[in-house]
Design a protein around this nucleic acid. Structure first.
Lengths: 220, 220
DNA sequence: CCTTTTCGATACAGTACTGTATCCGTTGAG
DNA sequence: CTCAACGGATACAGTACTGTATCGAAAAGG
């Protein structure tokens, strides 16, 4: 609303400007993760990016706008990664003659869920986002939208993977996903609290998850 | 450290002082929930409680200390409530001749999970706590401790309730609890985001949960 | 009833940050 | 080569908050 710049206007953002925005976003990601969205002063973010506040206000109207822009970027990246991994996994599954054993599944799940970037800071950011949305007067911040879209995407991905593995869900898919999501998110939280470093956490989660998957699916 | 007042010293807190602390804690609960632990200034909390900052610094050494005190109080209250409800439920279950049907179970679970105080602000506080713990240099803030104790308590409660209902867990108890906790916490989060007001949310959760319980338990 | 202690209020100095208004170097178009 | 527009730096005025140090009233103790 505040920054329409709709299609008919000059969409042209100079390379210089894009670079500035990127650096500010990168810096913000760090600082937000470190001290929180409220604890982060515009000044500090700019300092981290080696810019002055002038640059900031020339690119974003407020700290919240910056945060939302950051979130959008990260979600996008995240979604892409999932798509890529899902494609790999599907290919791998269809290439195999026999349906995967539990052990195979554990490996696949582990690989699929293995952290890519800085998982810890992502989790922190997401939690900040949740808090922001919780306090949002009337849904200005569309946490739900982000999540619904993401969920939908994920839903398709998981279903098609399961299918590629020659299985199908016993209980309705959406209910299954609720369970899976719950277990997964809880695992992430626990993992975040005891430090993400431990790689065995991921393996453990992988096998547990695979087991769960075998419990709530059946051969097609 | 700074305020030992260990057991051999005067534990006596005058009624006046206790009252002041309570009012400050109450105010803090509101303000923290509204604007977050970082967004809340000491000044604002004091204003809400109709005290000056003098009173605050005379009772707490910092905002974080206040927050931790608040959390302790709330956890305590929470735990008590669960104990009470569990006792009621157990009594109710043992009084019955026949093991509960799914419908019964849905009712019980719904009652057990039905919100008591301000669920929404509690969820917000807990999330703030999580974030605090995430950033905690080296486990000063003992989120894990709180949670482990709580979890342990809950674990016993759930198991004994299930037993009183004449059933037992198919998969190991701790794994079952992980699943239940995941599903529950996720439901709370979703509920928090779409406003806690909707009472049908609780009912829905109740029946889903009961169903899940029937899935992962069997008659003893 | 007077004294001592306790506890909260007030005053103060200092800091960090905000958003704007203005300035100036850079860059790209003609 | 020139000039306008762009994009970021700097300066400024103003605000909110912090923690401490001091003060005075109310309670407790004798």
């Amino acid at each position: 609303m505040t920054e329409p710049a709709s299609a008919h206007e000059a969409d042209h953002v100079s390379a210089r400007r894009r670079e500035t925005r990127t650096r500010l976003l990168d810096a913000a990601a760090e600082v937000f993760a470190e001290v929180g969205i409220q604890g982060a002063s515009v000044e500090r973010i700019c300092a981290r990016a080696d810019f002055s506040r002038g640059a900031f206000y020339s690119n974003f109207s407020s700290k919240e706008q910056l945060f939302l822009a950051l979130l959008e970027r990260e979600y996008e990246q995240r979604a892409n990664q999932i798509r890529v991994r899902a494609a790999e996994l599907t290919e791998c599954l269809t290439a195999n003659e026999h349906p995967p054993t539990r052990e195979d599944a554990a490996g696949y799940v582990t690989a699929f869920l293995s952290p890519s970037g800085n998982e810890s800071s992502w989790f922190t950011l997401e939690t900040e986002f949740l808090l922001l949305a919780l306090r949002d007067p009337e849904g200005e911040v569309q946490h739900v939208d982000f999540n619904l879209q993401f969920r939908h995407e994920l839903s398709n991905v998981v279903e098609s993977i399961v299918l590629a593995a020659g299985r199908r869900f016993i209980v309705p898919v959406d209910r299954s996903l609720t369970i899976l999501a719950g277990v997964y998110e809880r695992a992430v939280r626990v993992s975040a609290l005891s430090g993400f470093d431990a790689p065995e956490g991921v393996n453990e989660l992988g096998s547990r998850f695979a087991e769960l998957l075998f419990t709530i699916t059946e051969p097609v």
